Deep mutational scan, measured.
Amino acid sequence: MDVFMKGLSKAKEGVVAAAEKTKQGVAEAAGKTKEGVLYVGSKTKEGVVHGVATVAEKTKEQVTNVGGAVVTGVTAVAQKTVEGAGSIAAATGFVKKDQLGKNEEGAPQEGILEDMPVDPDNEAYEMPSEEGYQDYEPEA
């Protein structure tokens, strides 16, 4: 019985440690998101679009440190934060509304985080759909 109880105690310690790591990862992701939003706020009209992409990228980098179902929630929060940063930029006159959601080359930025393969159960990952990809044929 002692062996059984000791095993359960060790398992509990492992769960607590994993929860603490997840909590730490979420806190880091939130900190990076805040950094990115402050970065966007300090940019001029020309830099705002690039700044919004930076927020998304920093958040995406930190999301990889967070495991399990938390990833889905962090990704949703990050996307809403990026959308909010863009709205703030438009409201303050840093950028025109028609410039939001495009990178410096004018290509749409939507789907940055949505296409990231995420499995809350950590069982399997699927690649994003290939609808947006084109076949590449090298020139002879």
Rank of each mutant, 00 (worst) to 15 (best):
K34V: 08
Q134Y: 09
P117R: 05
E104S: 06
T75Y: 15
K12T: 09
V95F: 15
V52E: 00
G73R: 07
I88S: 02
G68W: 11
E131F: 03
P138N: 04
P117H: 10
L113R: 12
I88T: 03
T64K: 06
T72W: 09
A76R: 14
A11N: 00
Q79M: 10
K10L: 09
T81F: 11
T59N: 01
A76C: 15
L38F: 10
E139K: 08
V63Y: 11
E61F: 05
G7F: 11
D119S: 04
Y136T: 12
V95W: 09
T81V: 08
E57G: 06
F4C: 02
G73S: 09
A89E: 02
K12H: 13
A29Q: 05
A30R: 03
K43T: 05
V16F: 14
S9L: 03
V49A: 15
G51K: 07
D115N: 10
A18N: 00
I112M: 13
Q99Y: 10
E137F: 05
K97M: 05
M127W: 09
Y39N: 11
E131Q: 15
K60W: 06
A85M: 09
V52T: 01
E110T: 15
K45G: 04
T64F: 13
G41K: 02
E104T: 07
G67K: 07
F94P: 03
D98H: 02
V74E: 01
E46S: 12
V40H: 03
Q134G: 07
N122C: 14
S9D: 03
T64P: 02
Y125V: 08
I88E: 01
T22Y: 05
Y125T: 08
E110S: 05
V55P: 01
A69N: 07
G101N: 02
A29C: 14
E83W: 12
T22Q: 00
D135V: 06
F4V: 01
G132E: 05
Q79I: 10
V40N: 00
E105H: 01
G84I: 15
T81L: 10
E137Y: 09
Q99C: 11
Y133F: 08
G36C: 08
E105P: 02
T75V: 15
D135E: 07
I112G: 11
N103E: 06
S9W: 12
E131C: 13
V49P: 03
E110G: 08
V95G: 07
K21C: 03
T33S: 14
P128T: 06
V77I: 12
L113P: 06
E126M: 07
D98G: 09
V37N: 00
A124E: 14
E13V: 06
N103L: 06
S9E: 13
A30Y: 13
A53E: 11
G25T: 15
G36V: 08
K10E: 02
V49S: 14
A17K: 15
T44Q: 01
I112V: 12
S42F: 11
K10H: 04
G47S: 07
V49M: 15
M127K: 12
G31W: 04
G51Q: 08
D2G: 01
E13A: 14
M127D: 06
E28K: 12
Q109W: 06
I88R: 03
V66R: 04
V63A: 07
G111F: 11
G68Q: 03
A90M: 05
T22W: 13
G7P: 03
P117Q: 12
K23C: 08
A90G: 01
G14Y: 10
D115E: 10
S9F: 13
Q62Y: 06
G51V: 07
E57L: 09
E57P: 02
G41M: 12
V63P: 00
A85T: 13
N65L: 12
K12V: 14
E139C: 03
E46V: 05
K10F: 14
I88P: 01
D121W: 04
E20P: 00
V49Q: 08
S9M: 15
G14E: 07
H50W: 10
D121V: 06
A89P: 06
E13Q: 06
Q134H: 02
I88K: 03
E35Y: 13
V74L: 12
E114M: 03
A78Q: 05
H50K: 12
V48M: 08
A18W: 05
E131L: 06
E105V: 09
Y39R: 13
E13M: 11
G68D: 09
K96G: 09
K102A: 04
T54W: 13
E83A: 09
G25K: 13
G84V: 15
G106E: 06
A11M: 14
Q99A: 13
E139P: 09
P108F: 10
G73N: 15
M5C: 02
A107N: 13
Y133I: 02
T59C: 12
A19D: 00
L38E: 06
S42N: 11
A27D: 02
A124C: 09
V37W: 09
K6Y: 05
K21V: 09
G84R: 15
A85C: 08
A76Q: 12
N65I: 11
V48A: 05
G67Y: 12
A91C: 09
H50D: 13
A91Y: 13
E46H: 13
E105A: 11
V48S: 01
K80M: 03
V63Q: 01
K6I: 10
E13P: 01
A124V: 14
T81R: 02
A11L: 14
S129I: 06
Q134M: 08
I112S: 15
Q62I: 11
K34F: 06
T22V: 13
G73W: 04
K34E: 00
T64L: 11
K60V: 07
A11I: 15
K23H: 05
A17G: 05
T59Y: 13
K6L: 04
E57C: 06
A76L: 10
Q62W: 06
A89H: 08
K23D: 00
A53S: 10
G67T: 13
L113W: 11
E114V: 13
E123K: 06
P128G: 07
K6H: 04
S129E: 06
G41L: 02
T64R: 15
K43Q: 11
K97D: 04
L100G: 08
A78S: 03
K80F: 03
V118N: 14
A76H: 15
E123G: 10
T75E: 02
A140I: 04
G36K: 13
Q24L: 04
G86C: 11
V16N: 05
T92L: 12
E13L: 01
G14V: 10
G86R: 08
E137I: 06
L8W: 09
A89T: 06
T44H: 02
Q109L: 02
V71L: 11
K12S: 09
A89M: 07
T59D: 00
Q99V: 11
T75L: 11
K23M: 06
E28T: 14
I112C: 05
P128W: 07
T54C: 15
Y125F: 14
G47F: 15
E130D: 07
V118F: 13
V40D: 00
T22A: 07
G132V: 07
I112K: 04
Q62E: 03
A76I: 12
E105T: 11
E123I: 12
M127V: 12
E123S: 09
V37Q: 00
E20A: 03
L100P: 15
V66E: 01
E57A: 11
A30E: 00
G132D: 12
E28A: 08
V82K: 11
E114Q: 05
Q79C: 06
A27P: 00
S129N: 04
G51R: 06
